[in-house]
Computed example of a mutant assay.
Amino acid sequence: MDKWKRLIALMALAAGIIALIPGRMDAMNGVSAKSAILMEQHSGRVLFAKDAYTKRRIASITKIMTAVLAIESGKMDDLVTVSARAVRTEGSSIYLRQGEKIKLRDLVYGLMLRSGNDAAVAIAEHVGGSVEGFVFLMNKKAAEIGMRDTEFANPHGLDDAENHYSTAYDMALLMQYAMKNSEFRRISGTKVYRAPAPPGEEGARVWRNKNKLLTGLYEYCTGGKTGYTKRAHRTLVTTASKDGVNLIAVTLDAPDDWNDHIAMYEYGFSHYHIANVSGKRIVGKITDPFYEGRLRAARDLQYPVTSEEENELRVNVYLLKPRAEWKEDPDRVPAAVGKAVLYLHDKAVDETPLLYEHKKEKSGENSFWDLFSFLGVRSDG
């Protein structure tokens, strides 16, 4: 009996230790999705992951890529003539009519808010010349973004091809890329949109966003895209912002996706904040007489960290060794003369170019910088 008592005591002790691990263990156990990820938008840091690199069907979150290519085409004000192929597309629809002319911009809103498969085909034919040509552009863009475990076979995500898949991680990369575009952010975050009525009808088409997190379930949600097919099941990509922290959540095959996303966001917002190192303060610490007062950081250094990680941050500055001809003729100094690199646990996590300015600048004032250790300046010839 003593043996069993000791075993029970050890099990209780182990359970107690696990319970002390902050949030992450509970979040992992509580997410219903087969694959899930939580990513910080600026840095791409993964704050939470569950089987995030497994290839799965993605359904209508495919349309994020379709929207990106439409926006980047520069044709958003074009009038698109709706084809018979577009009208015959199965699944969710914005009820386009064959032969009607509608702005590409309106189609993108119908695509993102109402998940119109007919809109996806109409967009693909106009932007890519054909659906097949557009799919080529989709895969080319995926490669550019770094989506290594993704292949697109159509612009809408229907289960009509076996070679149409992605991963939670790749879809987060896509959303991170998309959110850099102001028009995509605006469309993704629109709750209600009114488009012109089809020919012969009065009034307007009114499209309400299917993203329930955006329209009422979660006050910090800023956008996203829903998805569902019988083979992919429920898929969802959303974004949320709170107190300067901008997050991306992705779930694949998730029976309880709304709550999955809320749980991941609450975990991220409660455990992480953005550490900011002022660019002015960085250059203000540089004492090299050639560069002193003449440098400007392209931007501040930023990275999401926990309170415990904050003390592990440091910055190194790397500068080109000044050349004799630069001192004789400052106009020959290149625009970028170095970089400042932010490290966490000896891993580089962010960097910014240091730019030379011919007009001497005043050094910055004390800032948040004082929370971090500055490890001097290195000159590289």
Rank of each mutant, 00 (worst) to 15 (best):
R186Y: 10
A178Q: 08
G16A: 07
Q41R: 12
A168I: 01
E312Y: 12
D160E: 15
T89C: 01
T66L: 02
D380E: 15
E219C: 06
L158R: 11
M179S: 05
V317N: 07
V341Q: 09
Y218Q: 05
R378Q: 15
D243A: 11
G364L: 07
A143M: 03
L10I: 11
Y303M: 06
L79G: 06
A36Y: 06
E325T: 07
T215W: 06
A178T: 01
V31M: 13
D350H: 10
D51V: 00
D370Y: 15
D331F: 08
L344S: 05
Y169T: 02
S83R: 00
L13I: 14
K225T: 04
A153I: 08
P199S: 12
H42P: 00
S130W: 06
P255H: 10
H42Y: 10
L213E: 08
K210L: 07
E328M: 08
A340N: 04
A324P: 03
E310V: 03
R314T: 10
I262D: 13
G200Q: 10
V87F: 04
V131N: 14
M11F: 08
R378N: 13
E132P: 09
I61F: 11
I94Q: 03
R105I: 02
G279W: 01
G44F: 04
K101L: 02
Y95F: 13
Q176N: 11
Y272H: 08
A86G: 05
K285P: 04
G110N: 02
G338S: 12
V337A: 01
D51R: 11
S73H: 10
V192I: 13
K225N: 03
L344R: 08
S83K: 01
I8L: 15
